[in-house]
Structure formats: structure tokens, C-alpha cells
Design a protein around this nucleic acid. Structure first.
Ligand SMILES: [Mn+2]
Ligand SMILES: [Mn+2]
Ligand SMILES: [Zn+2]
Ligand SMILES: [Zn+2]
Lengths: 137, 137
DNA sequence: TAAACTCTGCAACCCGGTTGCATCAACTTT
DNA sequence: AAAGTTGATGCAACCGGGTTGCAGAGTTTA
């Protein structure tokens, strides 16, 4: 049993069930964000609902964050260790129009916006669409 | 028959059918973006498919643009007259977490992003979520 | 051990979006 | 004017991601 995985769960106050360990393992191996249907396909035999609720739990506890890239299915990616999903933690995401992969651009924070008067900001979703470096060659 | 409406359609090379005139009329009256299900409710008796295809036609011809604000239904709003939906025409959108309305912040262009090497930009979707000035009072 | 709570799996459902197809209206050609 | 062509409309059915209700299995607590 991977101790690292359990520590991550513990760090976010998530009980380390077998299912959750497996899901976190898959998420850790991803280079790009993954959707619920894609996650389903990673397992021989796993129930959609359980995976769904596992992702919800992970998200609520800020182990992962969700990304709506406009493709019709929400994708998920690991948060950084210190992430609290506050506005200052937010980064830009990139959707490749060729391969369909969605990447966290962790090094690119979401730019600050000057909203009109009396508009309060809670969060920002910024998705850049284009061609990724893999597909550009 | 509103001449203004017909001119707008003509300007975008869209044949001015009765249905299209009505839909454009509704879109013109909106202060915030509207979804297909919402548009359906604006009519006593109208077919979802026709409205769907009308919106698609409008979007293809850049009379309107679509906004995925993450609420699960895509919303639509009129483009400005000179808009060609190029990256330089893009603006920020605002989703109010209280009333659910989505507004075009036409005066706030989407900030420029410095992408990693070999990433090509095509378009950007930037949605700010928070509380709008109506709900803030 | 018994009770309380949590997690899991199955089925069914919801809803926005989309497609296929037949019909209808407008416009062209003869 | 009649026939042919094109595009718009309306209806039904479907698709897929997401979500809920509920029962049973597993785990924790007293
Ligand atoms: Mn991310
Ligand atoms: Mn807009
Ligand atoms: Zn790519
Ligand atoms: Zn509001």
C-alpha cells in the first residue's frame, strides 16, 4: 500500500478506503485533467456513482479541483499541497483543440480583473483553447 | 415588422424568417445572456430544435456568441456590430452566484496570457463568478 | 455485541443537447 | 403556371454526463 497516497488523503481529512486510494493513484498518474467518464474507463469494473462521489469528496476537501473546459464533461486535477482553492490559488487551464487534453498551467495565475462597481468576486474560471505543445510539432 | 431586426440579420447574412426575427427580438431585449431552455420558455409554443438551430445559425454567423459559465447550460448573448469573435474581440463574463444571471462585461477585454513555449492560442473563456450589483444591495 | 454511521453498488431518473426524418415554404428553372 | 430545388421547421427519439434514492456491506463507537 502506497504510504504517500494515504498521507495525502489524511492531509485532507479523507478516510483512506480502497476505492479512494485507487482513484487518487489514477489521478496522481495523470499528466492532464480527467473526467468522470474517462475515470470510469480506467477501471475494469467500477461503479460510476462511487467514482462520482469519490470525486465530490475529493473536491470538497480540496484534494482536487474541477475544470469546466466547455467540452461537456467536467474534468478534475490534483490540487497542490498548499492549495485552498482561494482566488489567489487559481491558475489558468489549457484545452487542446486537437488532442482534447486539458492541462493545469500551474505557473500562470489567473489575472486580476477590475470588476464594475458593486460586483463581488468569488472565483474565476479561465480556460485557454488552442494547440498544445504535443500536437504543435 | 421591425426594420432594425431585419438589418441586423442581413448584416450577418442570415435569411430573415419569422422565427429568426422573433428570436433576435428576444435576444435584443435581454439584459443578460440566455440559455436554450430559457429561450424556450419565452415562447408559448415553439419547438426546441428550431430554436436550437436558430441559435446555431446565429452563432456561426457571429450575430451571437456562446458563454459556458459552468452552470450546465450554455448561454448566448448578442455580439457587438463589429465583432468577429476573434481573440481581440473577447471579453470577460460574469456569473452571479445569487441570481444566476450571466452578464457580458463588454468593457473588460480578456487579459493577455503568456503561454508556455509551443502552445498556440485560439480563444479564451474567462468567467468570473461572484455577486452582481443587483444582488449586492 | 449492538447500535450508529459511512461507504458502496445498482437502478432509475433528469436534463441539456443533438440527430434523423418527414413536411412545408420560398425561391428557381423550364 | 408547373415542376424542381433548396433551405427552414416540427416532431420524435436518442445520447451522455450528471445526480438521486435506496438497500446492503463495511466500519466505528459505546
Ligand atoms: Mn488546474
Ligand atoms: Mn459576452
Ligand atoms: Zn494537444
Ligand atoms: Zn445577481
Amino acid at each position: 500500500m502506497n504510504e504517500q497516497i494515504n498521507n495525502q488523503l489524511k492531509h485532507r481529512n479523507i478516510k483512506p478506503t480502497a476505492m479512494r486510494q485507487l482513484v487518487l493513484q489514477v489521478l496522481t498518474e495523470q499528466k492532464s485533467a480527467i473526467s468522470l467518464p474517462e475515470l470510469e474507463n480506467k477501471f475494469e469494473k467500477a461503479d460510476k456513482t462511487t467514482l462520482y462521489r469519490t470525486l465530490k469528496t475529493f473536491e470538497e476537501n480540496k484534494l482536487i479541483h474541477s475544470i469546466d473546459d466547455g467540452t461537456g464533461s467536467v474534468k478534475y486535477a490534483l490540487c497542490r499541497e498548499a492549495c485552498e482553492c482561494h482566488p489567489e490559488d487559481l491558475h489558468v487551464h489549457f484545452l487542446c483543440a486537437v488532442c482534447g487534453q486539458t492541462y493545469c498551467l500551474n505557473d500562470i495565475p489567473v489575472p486580476t480583473i477590475n470588476l464594475p462597481a458593486k460586483f463581488q468576486l468569488e472565483s474565476v474560471n479561465m480556460v485557454v483553447k488552442g494547440v498544445c505543445s504535443n500536437c504543435d510539432k
